[in-house]
Amino acid sequence: MDTNRRGFLGAMGRVSIGAAATVAGAGQSATAATDPDHRTHWGMVVDLRKCIGCQACTVACIMENDVPEDAFRTHVSVYELVKDGQDPAMVMLPRLCNHCDNPPCLPVCPVEATFKAENGEVLVDASKCVGCAYCVQACPYDARFINHETQVADKCTFCFHRTSVGLLPACVETCVGGARNFGDLNDPDSEVSRMLRENEVSVLRPEMHTNPNVYYIGLDEVLDGRVAGEAAYRPPLTGEAQATHGEGL
């Protein structure tokens, strides 16, 4: 199944509206979806050649997940890249929880609120979380925060509430350039698996050996460690102007 917005909407158009929510495996091929022994493992491939920094993903995530002011589950950092003999270039780096196979946030949780879901997502059980922020400190991707409204750990969930009913994550569905692609990494026929086979891909903080499930196409090596800093998009605060932030390299 296609995993960019246009492909997804086209595929959804081939089923009735009433059945749309029951489409099994939004990022699976028909073969994987009908294999009783198949185990889905969600992942994302971000094609930086297509990201234009429009921040539609950031806004969609905030609206979909009711993210509080001054916090982000996903955002796009904007950097000025300067190399010898070349003109300065603006580069984009979409960032989110990497849903690692070996997540360092999991073993530090004293109440086992952070856990791995069946399809590979790293999630937080809010009913158990005590807001100690150990997981926030342990995350090498700066992808967690303590929600100041709920007082518990918060983060990207790959839109678990959407994928569990056959829908794409909100950030993927709203990506106007088709830079974000989501699907089943265990399905060799999925679009994300094809992209991984046919392109040179990179991950953030490879030295951490977390086995992340978010991959990047076109990531300059100078950016693979750039995981801290403010987002380029910041929701307007009451009585204050919206600010745009960048970070030079």
Rank of each mutant, 00 (worst) to 15 (best):
Ala20Pro: 01
Ala20Asn: 00
Ala21Asp: 12
Ala21Asn: 12
Ala21Met: 02
Ala21Trp: 06
Ala21Tyr: 11
Thr22Ser: 14
Thr22Cys: 03
Thr22Asn: 10
Thr22Arg: 14
Val23Phe: 09
Ala24Ser: 09
Ala24Ile: 07
Ala24His: 10
Ala24Asp: 09
Ala24Pro: 15
Ala24Tyr: 11
Gly25Leu: 07
Gly25Cys: 07
Gly25Val: 09
Gly25Gln: 03
Ala26Ile: 10
Ala26Cys: 13
Gly27Asn: 05
Gly27Gln: 06
Gly27Glu: 08
Gln28Pro: 05
Ser29Met: 04
Ala30Leu: 15
Ala30Asp: 10
Ala30Asn: 11
Ala30Thr: 12
Ala30Lys: 15
Thr31Asn: 03
Thr31Gln: 15
Ala32Arg: 05
Ala32His: 06
Ala32Ser: 15
Ala33Tyr: 09
Ala33Trp: 06
Ala33His: 07
Thr34Phe: 07
Thr34Asp: 12
Thr34Tyr: 09
Pro36Gln: 10
Pro36Ala: 07
Pro36Cys: 08
Pro36Gly: 05
Pro36Thr: 12
Asp37His: 15
Asp37Thr: 14
Asp37Ser: 13
Asp37Val: 02
His38Met: 05
His38Gly: 05
His38Val: 07
His38Glu: 03
His38Cys: 01
Arg39Met: 03
Arg39Gln: 13
Arg39Val: 04
Arg39Cys: 02
Thr40Gly: 00
Thr40Met: 11
Thr40Arg: 11
Thr40Ile: 10
His41Phe: 13
His41Arg: 14
Trp42Phe: 06
Trp42Met: 08
Gly43Ser: 13
Gly43Asp: 05
Gly43His: 00
Gly43Arg: 07
Gly43Leu: 04
Met44Glu: 09
Met44Asp: 07
Val45Thr: 06
Val45Pro: 06
Val46His: 08
Val46Met: 12
Val46Lys: 03
Val46Asp: 03
Asp47Gly: 08
Asp47Ser: 03
Asp47Leu: 02
Leu48Tyr: 07
Leu48Gly: 07
Arg49Glu: 10
Arg49Pro: 00
Arg49Met: 02
Lys50Met: 01
Cys51Glu: 00
Ile52Cys: 11
Ile52Val: 14
Ile52Gln: 13
Gly53Ser: 09
Gly53Pro: 02
Gly53His: 06
Gly53Cys: 12
Gly53Ala: 10
Gly53Met: 09
Cys54Lys: 06
Cys54Phe: 06
Cys54Gln: 00
Cys54Ser: 11
Ala56Ser: 14
Cys57Phe: 02
Cys57Leu: 07
Thr58Phe: 01
Thr58Leu: 04
Val59Ser: 02
Val59Thr: 12
Ala60Gly: 09
Ala60Cys: 04
Ala60Asp: 02
Ala60Thr: 00
Cys61Arg: 09
Cys61Asp: 05
Cys61Gly: 08
Ile62His: 15
Ile62Trp: 08
Ile62Glu: 08
Ile62Gly: 04
Ile62Cys: 00
Met63Gln: 14
Glu64His: 13
Glu64Arg: 13
Glu64Gln: 15
Asn65Tyr: 05
Asn65Phe: 02
Asn65Trp: 00
Asn65Glu: 13
Val67Phe: 00
Val67Glu: 03
Val67Gly: 04
Pro68Asp: 08
Pro68Gln: 08
Pro68Asn: 11
Glu69Tyr: 10
Glu69Lys: 12
Glu69Pro: 11
Glu69Leu: 15
Asp70Gly: 09
Ala71Pro: 03
Ala71His: 15
Ala71Phe: 06
Ala71Gly: 01
Ala71Ser: 14
Ala71Leu: 04
Ala71Val: 01
Ala71Asn: 10
